[in-house]
Design a protein around this nucleic acid. Structure first.
Lengths: 219, 219
DNA sequence: ACAAAAGTGTTTTTACTACACCCATGT
DNA sequence: ACATGGGTGTAGTAAAAACACTTTTGT
């Protein structure tokens, strides 16, 4: 049994995925998802976190189980069942992944232009992408993607990247206001050749109270 | 690696789950989900189907992967990862499950009144129930539950069982009409001390054309 | 001055909710 | 006759979609 991690980050206005270049056979030299085998007494999500750390140097807290892939032919070495995980790096964390362990190289790829992949990792990525699209509509996933402080423009851009379509600025802001889960930080996003924008932060407390009442996001 | 199946059927107006009584240790005598170990060259979903057949005599085509449970302590015999599956028996199939193989007994239980369960099967059932509730709102799951021919009353009862709340008859029928996925069979449901009801069937073709346009169910 | 993103309201359309009565049948 | 589920319409409310202009800044 193995685990694989699909790690997303918004980078330069594009949805990006972290891939490693495989050091060893099978598929040596091909790009693949970070991952590896589960240790005997290790929880599945712990294994996903550990493999990600070993292969890319990234240490993440939140991961969500995606799907288990068990085609008997998916690994040429023999029977390997892969439990895949979905993870997110906030846009304001500037991790420069470094190769490690099994990985010759670790790099971010545009989620819409992926290279040829080892194993069935292309399928895993398709499932992950679908899940991301679905979940941004009714969870706090969008807020995890933007990072701690963000402008409404950045937040909208994030939603647009994930959903793959443009949103109406006024409608987007109206819905967000209705949710009442943002609080203005008082700070401003300046130093660009444009009008400064307010910086907001996600107000976890307000959200929790909504969730307890069964209310989720209407995006 | 093992597989477990959560099999639902609407029986006598109640949402029901199929359980087996364990023959052997661990947890001999306790109720559990039908399931067992995956064979070396077997697909995961095929394993779930096979175990269900061996332990209960039920042969199902459709199964959907639910979640993988991998707590190192979940099985006292040692490390066992369980990939769980969700399955549905249409209300018009009168399967009388018979014990077999590992199972001393196989029986249907009311999904709202379950006995003490082996392993972490109670958790699995909670996840399954949640998934069922969520998916009946935007997939054809409700139509799989009712069977080939059904009255609108039976269909509504099915939705009510799964959702756990009453629905308004007129609103329910209006939404259904708007979906345009039912066709009248021309037959009638008689032989009851009531006014006869039209029997409908699910028109898969009409649904496919909706799905291709990205439209799912608004229940 | 200009380019670029920030910010802001109204109207129309659509979906959801609540609600009550007559009908057809078997017993 | 009666008990039981089958069948039908309307009005009010809330959410979603469509749509354009002014403001502020750095260069």
């Amino acid at each position: 049994v193995a685990v694989d991690a699909v790690v997303y980050q918004i980078r330069a206005g594009r949805l990006s995925v972290l891939l490693i270049r495989r050091e060893r056979a099978p598929f040596a030299g091909l790009w693949a998802l970070p991952g590896g085998f589960v240790e005997p007494d290790e929880d599945l999500s712990a294994a996903a976190r550990r493999e990600l750390r070993e292969e890319t140097g990234i240490d993440l807290s939140w991961m969500e189980q995606l799907y288990s892939f068990g085609d008997p032919q998916r690994d040429p070495r023999g029977r390997v069942i892969s439990v895949s995980y979905l993870a997110i790096v906030p846009a304001d964390e500037k991790v420069q992944p470094h190769a490690g362990d099994d990985a010759r190289q670790a790099e971010w790829f545009d989620a819409d232009h992926l290279p040829a992949m080892a194993f069935d990792h292309q399928t895993i990525l398709e499932v992950a992408r679908q899940r991301l699209r679905a979940k941004i509509e009714y969870t706090t996933l969008g807020f995890q993607l933007v990072g701690r402080l963000f402008t409404l423009g950045q937040l909208q851009e994030t939603f647009e990247c994930v959903l793959g379509r443009r949103l109406d600025k006024r409608n987007f802001r109206r819905k967000l206001a209705a949710l009442n889960v943002l609080e203005a930080s008082g700070q401003w996003h300046c130093d660009r050749p444009h009008r400064p924008a307010r910086l907001y932060r996600f107000a976890r407390k307000r959200f929790e109270s909504l969730r307890e009442r069964g209310i989720l996001f209407p995006f």
